[in-house]
Design a protein around this nucleic acid. Structure first.
Length: 574
RNA sequence: CGGGGAGUGGCGCAGCCUGGUAGCGCGCCAGUUUUGGGAACUGGAUGUCGCAGGUUCGAAUCCUGUCUCCCCGACCA
């Protein structure tokens, strides 16, 4: 591609609405343009990267035995009504009507559609297992899209769905996808972790998320420093606590004027936060109000609480509710004398003689003990894991990372196949409900995550497998005939060798060309200028390492092609 | 949706408080001189100041409404 004839609008300045580095650099490098909140144009350079990711995904899915197809983006409401999701799925589902007022949605995910395909075309266990996938534009009307391609409303996703006769088969299909995903992200040159995850409202029994490690990630994940255990904090189990407490101090009411938070109270009473217990008054969607006790320095994990209570949503009670339930303004809630259900994190069980709210303005208790002073209905694992916690599987300790979720694999079970009557005949001639799995990869998000992990002050540094171009030839003075000709010659030789090369033949000053080359993040830059030509050489610079080398003109194309191929293989290996 | 902020040439911003009919930098076009890390000079083009009302002799500026965008929370590839 000739730069002078390409559409590559680079920006010197960062657009004001771009917050994270990947968004800033994608905008500056002329990869994307915003059309509306969470909706983007993929400009030519951006599309090239998207295609790179797609092709890696496609190759690995095919290798794992999955079959590509393409389902419609616009899906009739009937299908979604079969599974009840037309009602369940909230405002994220973009609902539209056609001219006859028939309802449709723009598909945010395709369990219903694919299940409909399989129920109509797969009738025998002999056709199993089968795994169907597509790479397609999805739409989810997110409440708050942000960070460019990281969380768009419209985005490109690879979604795959496996169908098996039984759980064992489904587990095997799941394992295949898990391994395929590892290969995909390794080939993309990304540092990532596969972590145990919550299944959310897609449903199903177990799942893993593939997290690219990056500070700007929106998820917290934990991993053990000794074994393989890794999980999203939403999901991370904590080791069961077995210690039991016994009281040694009497319950005494103390004044804590204006001290509401754990920090304020523990500082005021000169007690460690670990020796305090906080009482959260919460409500679920059924408007049940209850009190949750946690050690002062711990945080509530709402997902664990939801699971315990068999509800979908937990929120902190309003000030009025707190006042009504505890008889005091928030900040002083405690379990003593409370009339609502009281449940506690398991680690409260091992505490004794702690500080706790007294349900009266500016007052706390010291020397509080459950069992003696109040009763706890249930102890359970309810808190968020944090750095330094013991691993639930071994003697190691947990570390905390930030991650970007680029892929997610689920065991779905029969949730959709049962609702939609997707069955096959087994070898006994009996109807069997198919056991499903589903597997997603955010294509644009993967590209964005790659930038989060691979950039410097000058711009993007693409891993070779994702680079929109593998080599950029910067012709320093295209007005000098012999310089332009030397550039053109190399350009032609590289194209012949199948290398993706961008020829910067613009009539710009050298500085601009170097800045743009760095910004775009092309892994190898060849400078063609009078200086090198005097010695019959091109000059090579590696974007990542900054290393430079003189390449004799006669062997340049061969050497460069070899470097590109070895970089591709290095990053594809492992 | 709750809380915070912002809409002014393609991009980044100033002007608004204290109303008088729009300015700076980058980019763009033409020319001259330049040419190894975002060149200099000269000349030029581009704005119904988000939209709709209102106040006023006069509104980018004040008032009301509305739309959009961004940030913090819930959601997720």
């Amino acid at each position: 591609m000739r730069y002078s004839q390409y559409l590559l609008p680079t920006l010197k300045e960062t657009p004001g609405d771009a917050e994270v580095i990947s968004h800033q650099l994608m905008a500056r490098a002329g990869m994307i343009r915003k059309v509306a909140a969470g909706i983007y144009d993929y400009l030519p350079l951006g599309l090239r990267v998207i295609r790179k990711v797609e092709n890696i995904v496609r190759e690995e899915m095919n290798r794992a035995g999955a079959i590509e197809l393409l389902m419609p983006s616009v899906v009739p409401a009937d299908l979604w009504e079969e599974t009840g999701r037309w009602q369940q799925y909230g405002k994220e589902l973009l609902r539209i009507k056609d001219r006859k007022d028939t309802e449709f949605c723009f598909g945010p995910t395709h369990e219903e559609v694919v299940t409909e395909i399989v129920r109509g075309t797969v009738n025998s266990y002999r056709q199993l297992p089968i795994n169907l996938y597509q790479i397609q534009t999805k739409f989810r009307d997110e409440i708050r899209p942000r960070f460019g391609l990281m969380r768009g409303r419209e985005f490109i996703m690879k979604d795959a769905y496996s169908f098996d006769l039984d759980d064992a088969g489904a587990s095997a299909s799941y394992e295949k996808m898990y391994q395929a995903y590892r290969r995909i992200f390794e080939r993309c040159g990304l540092k990532f972790r596969a972590v145990e995850a919550d299944t959310g409202n897609i449903g199903g029994s177990s799942s893993h998320e593939f997290m690219v490690l990056a500070e700007t990630g929106e998820d917290d994940i934990v991993s053990c420093d000794a074994c393989e255990y890794a999980a999203n904090v939403e999901k991370a189990e904590l080791r069961p606590s077995t210690t039991l407490a016994s009281a040694t101090q009497p319950l005494v009411e103390v004044d804590t004027p204006n001290r509401k938070t754990i920090e304020e109270v523990s500082a005021f009473l000169k007690v460690a936060a670990t020796q305090t217990v906080k009482t959260l008054i919460v409500q679920n969607e059924r408007k049940e109000t209850l009190a949750v006790l946690l050690r002062g320095d711990h945080d509530l994990n709402e997902i664990k609480l939801c699971r315990l209570l068999d509800c979908n949503e937990i929120e902190m009670a309003s000030e009025e509710t707190v006042q009504a339930v505890t008889g005091a303004p928030s900040g002083f809630a405690g379990p003593v004398g409370l009339k609502v259900r009281i449940i506690a994190d398991q680690e409260v069980q091992g505490l004794s003689d702690y500080v706790i709210g007294a349900n009266a303005l500016d007052t706390h208790f010291v020397g509080a003990n459950h069992g003696r002073d109040f009763a706890v209905e249930t102890f359970a694992d309810l808190r968020q894991a944090q750095a330094g916690d013991s691993c639930p599987r071994c003697e190691g300790a947990l570390e905390v990372w930030r991650g970007i979720e680029v892929g997610h694999v689920f065991k779905l079970g029969t949730k959709y196949s049962e609702a939609m009557g997707a069955t096959v005949l087994d070898d006994q001639g009996q109807d069997r409900t198919l056991v499903m799995g589903c597997y997603g990869i955010g294509v644009g998000r993967t590209a964005a995550a790659a930038i989060e992990q691979n950039h410097d002050a000058n711009g993007i540094i693409w891993p070779m497998p994702l680079a929109p171009f593998q080599i950029i030839i910067s012709v320093l003075n295209p007005n000098a005939a012999e310089v332009l000709e030397a550039g053109e010659t190399l350009y032609a030789q590289l194209l012949e060798r199948g290398i993706e090369v961008l020829l910067d033949d613009r009539d710009e000053r050298p500085g601009s060309k170097f800045k743009d080359a760095d910004l775009l993040g092309i892994p190898l830059r060849v400078t063609v200028g009078a200086r090198g030509l005097k010695e019959q050489c091109y000059e090579l610079q590696n974007r990542r390492s900054g290393e430079r080398a003189m390449l004799p003109m006669v062997e340049a194309a061969t050497q460069l092609a070899a470097q590109v191929h070895s970089a591709l293989n290095a990053e594809a290996g492992g």
